[in-house]
Amino acid sequence: MRKTGSALVTGASRGLGASIARRLAADGWPVAVNYLPDPGDAQRVVDGIVTNGGTAEAFRADITDEAAVDALIEQVEARLGPVAVLVPNATGPQPSKPALDVSWQDHLDQLLFFVKSPSLLMRAALPGMRRLGGGRIVQIGSEMPERAAPGMSAYAAAKAAQMSLTRTWARELGPLGVTVNLVAPGWIPVERHASVAAEHVEAYRRDVPLGRMGTPDEIADVVAFLASDGARFVTGERITVNGGYTMD
């Protein structure tokens, strides 16, 4: 059944974002598939959704640019309806660097995607959510703050900041009927990991209590739950989806 409003998934042309977009469309949401810069992958996601009976359109935008985000939300609202479900998923490069080599710019590069971009998107989408009487914001976090993996300090710090945003927004936006939650995937191999050696994947898998690597669809399932009416009384939460890898 078609939903009221639309779902916007940033960075949805491939990887986790593509799976999330497909799952939300299967649940009846008209989905805005955000991409940058190549439209080919995004259009394939859209075509697949439409072939399966869903509604989707591709929207090109740099979600770290304030004017571009405002224009994106305006375009999505005009073509698919107000954004009822916002999934800030887009990310950038995640270089591994020893702590002594990490510059302030390295930190800013990560904060750009995990603090600035979600903030811009929330601010632009919120008026539409208020018109709808509520909405869902589902951030895509990471297990990295718990893993404290050497070389990933800038990324881990930004992801920890993203969780703080989630909890604070949950308190502030709750009275408006907007829930805010975060899904923290483990290492889910996608296209960007194609060059990772098989032994590294196997080393990670051995420490997963469920004995296997996760899949993008398993992340999408949890996002879809948080976007659903079934999660109407869930907010300010962080759900880790990694087969138990970071259990205490």
Rank of each mutant, 00 (worst) to 15 (best):
G5R: 00
G5F: 06
V9A: 01
R14M: 04
R14D: 09
A18M: 00
A18R: 15
R22G: 03
A26R: 11
D27G: 09
G28K: 14
P30I: 01
P30D: 14
P30W: 04
V31F: 07
V33F: 07
P39K: 15
P39M: 12
A42L: 12
V50N: 10
E57V: 01
E66V: 11
E66H: 03
A71S: 13
E74N: 09
V83Q: 03
P88R: 00
T91M: 15
G92Y: 08
Q94W: 09
S96F: 13
A99E: 14
F113A: 12
F114V: 10
F114G: 00
L120G: 09
L121K: 06
A124E: 05
L126W: 06
L132C: 12
G133V: 04
G134E: 03
R136P: 03
Q139V: 10
I140P: 00
M144H: 15
M144A: 14
P145I: 06
R147V: 12
R147F: 10
A148I: 05
A149F: 13
A149R: 13
P150C: 03
P150D: 13
A157L: 03
A161G: 05
T166I: 03
A170N: 01
P175F: 14
V183K: 06
P185R: 03
I188D: 02
I188H: 07
I188W: 06
E202W: 11
E202I: 04
A203I: 11
R205D: 09
R206Q: 11
R206D: 12
V208C: 10
L210F: 12
L210S: 08
G211Q: 06
G211E: 02
G211N: 09
R212C: 11
D221R: 14
V222L: 05
L226R: 01
L226T: 03
A227G: 02
S228I: 00
G230D: 08
A231Q: 00
R232Q: 07
F233D: 09
V234T: 09
